[in-house]
Design a protein around this nucleic acid. Structure first.
Length: 434
RNA sequence: GGAGGGGUGGCUGAGCGGUCGAAAGCACUGGUCUUGAAAACCAGCGAAGCUGUCAAAGCUUCCCAGGGUUCGAAUCCCUGCCCCUCCGCCA
């Protein structure tokens, strides 16, 4: 949600900024609704004031033991007029609210112009892209002996699901634990366990509603929704909260499954586990004072990058262009990992600064001791990292051409010391030491 | 699933249908006192929005949410949500 007061003052400047996000702000519609709102609100408040004054006089007269009948008669149709005014105000406010809810966040001035992901700008790259003396397989082929079983998942559930078995299932678990441990022990995040089903208010708070209702799953007959990302339950912890300044910055790490309907992505990434209805993610969330959010974005991005570096996975960081930027974000840095099976970089983390956009929607505030005032916090989040895609990256980058996967050093303690996974043996389970 | 109790300001907690946005205490902020601190005492202290160029000032709304009764609702009625206690079931 944007600052309405600022929007009123300079709607044209807002419209100009939103063009970078390919959003057309209907300034005339806004000005019309604002004029309506103002008229309706002043009229309603005027009638309320009159009613209050009259009621107060009746109360006073009654207290003095006087006959209140004439005073009551005098009220006349005030109630009816007030009801009508309230009705009108309610309607225009609802329209205005809807209008404002649909407007995306303003992109930061540093966000490059552009239409789609082809226009994103690389800001750094790390690691060496592996050279193989064989044709690298993608994860689907690497797991074909049974460790990654897409057919079984299709039978049990449908398309866009996976069943992992044996060593790969363990690798998946190991990655999760590894990431959580690093973020907690070394990056100063507090671990959080949160619900996977949330109410609509939470989805409004972080901006998944009202515009993107088709992107997530809603439980039939209920008002609960499967979370599309851990961002939703974790950021909403601070909905309707006024924080003490001393509690900032807040850093949370949370491992959750994520559920996405992937409506509108038919035919896209249908092979393998790049785009699934269900995947796991370790999410980083920060709640900070307004003057600390840009620093926070750099920091949070570096925390996500640290995981890739320790896993020795080559990646690059790109700044999303206006056209590719999400609804609520002012700026987003994507981390893209190299996938030999596809011969290209793929998104594995998305780190965003939302400024006060989410905070405004969810009334997440803090008490600023310097000014003695209450102000909105700034919120940030990023994947640290998406587990499924990290698994794919490990399998594809560390294959040896003979169906074996080299386990990166950092992960071995989480794999019971195992250095190599043999996927050719079916489930990739090492034969028992006999 | 059954029975009962309850949702009031940062917290605890009063509240009669009519100067109640709401007693009191705690916490917090400022002051007096003190070498300093504590204690004591004095004062202040909820949020959102609107009108106003700014400011001064004024107004409206908010006592879980949504309806209703009434000239007037924190207070009465209905519905929903949430919490607590006991019983049952249960990972």
């Amino acid at each position: 949600m944007l600052d309405v007061k600022l929007l009123r003052q300079q709607p044209d400047i807002f419209a100009q900024c939103l063009k970078v996000k390919n959003y057309v702000l209907d300034v005339n519609e806004f000005l019309f609704l604002e004029a309506e709102r103002k008229a309706a609100q002043t009229e309603t408040e005027r009638l309320q004031r009159e009613r209050n004054a009259r009621s107060k006089r009746i109360g006073a007269a009654k207290a003095r033991g006087e006959d209140i009948a004439p005073l009551v008669a005098e009220v006349g149709d005030l109630g009816a007029r007030l009801d009508a005014a309230k009705e009108r105000l309610g309607q225009v406010q609802a329209r205005l609210h809807d209008f404002l809810q649909q407007i995306p966040n303003l992109p930061d001035a540093s966000v490059p112009e552009g239409r789609d992901e082809a226009d994103n700008v690389e800001i750094r790259a790390w690691g060496r892209i592996p050279k193989f003396n064989f044709e690298p397989l993608d994860h689907v082929d690497l797991g074909v002996a049974g460790a990654l079983d897409f057919a079984a998942a299709a039978k049990v559930s449908g398309a866009r699901f996976v069943v992992m078995k044996g060593a790969v299932a363990r690798l998946h678990r190991a990655l999760t634990q590894f990431m959580l441990d690093i973020h907690v022990a070394e990056h100063g995040y507090t671990e959080v366990y949160a619900p996977y089903l949330v109410n609509s208010a939470s989805l409004y708070g972080t901006g998944q509603l009202p515009k993107f209702a088709e992107d997530h799953f809603t439980v039939e007959g209920g008002e609960l929704h499967l979370i599309p990302t851990g961002e939703v339950p974790v950021t909403n912890l601070y909905r309707d909260v006024i924080l003490g300044a001393e509690t900032l910055p807040i850093r949370h790490v949370c491992h959750t499954p994520c559920f996405r309907s992937e409506a509108g992505s038919y035919g896209k990434d249908t092979r393998g586990m790049i785009r699934q209805h269900q995947f796991e993610k370790v999410e980083l969330v920060q709640v900070v004072a307004p003057d600390a959010s840009w620093e926070g974005l750099e920091e949070l991005t570096a925390h996500a990058e640290a995981i890739l570096r320790r896993l020795e996975l080559p990646y690059r960081a790109v700044v999303l262009c206006g056209g590719d930027l999400g609804f609520a974000a002012a700026k987003t840095i994507d981390l893209e990992v190299w996938l030999p099976g596809q011969g290209r970089y793929r998104e594995i983390s998305s780190c965003s600064n939302f400024l006060d956009f989410q905070a405004r929607r969810m009334m997440a505030r803090f008490r600023d001791p310097d000014r003695g005032a209450i102000d909105y916090v700034h919120t940030l989040n990023g994947s640290g990292l998406a587990i499924g895609r990290t698994l794919v990256a490990v399998l594809e980058n560390f294959q040896d051409g003979a169906g074996r996967i080299h386990v990166p050093d950092a992960l071995r303690p989480y794999m019971g010391g195992v250095a190599t996974l043999d996927l050719s043996a079916g489930l990739g389970l090492s034969p028992p030491a006999s």
